[in-house]
């Protein structure tokens, strides 16, 4: 008998695998832009994992952490892009 909790744990495992693969690209990436793209992908996966942790541990405050983290990473990507194009 498969319970919903078990499916959730399997999904979190698959997301962790995806984060590991993005981490390979982050270490290997030939140019700066590759690393920023991998960082963006890691951010989205970790947003989903934070929301799953909020769901499982039943604490709503973690959702606010996810919202603020997404905002900060958006600003970070914009700043890096502006920097590599014409300097700060």
């Amino acid at each position: 008998m498969i319970s919903p909790e078990m499916i959730v744990y399997i999904a979190v495992g698959i997301m962790t695998l995806a984060m590991l693969m993005a981490m390979v690209r982050f270490v290997k990436g030939p140019s700066v832009v590759d690393r920023v793209v991998a960082f963006d992908s890691l951010t989205i996966s970790s947003l989903v994992i934070i929301s799953v942790i909020a769901m499982l541990s039943n604490r709503m405050i973690y959702f606010d952490v996810a919202i603020v983290y997404g905002l900060l990473s958006f600003i970070g990507v914009i700043v890096v892009a502006k920097y590599i194009q014409k300097g700060l």
Binding site: I10, A11, I14, M15, L17, M21, A22, R25, V48
Partner: peptide, 14 residues
């Protein structure tokens, strides 16, 4: 589970 598969496919593409 479907969303996690989509994330995995995007990582493979990466």
């Amino acid at each position: 589970l479907m969303g996690s598969f989509s994330l995995l496919i995007s990582a493979i593409g990466l």
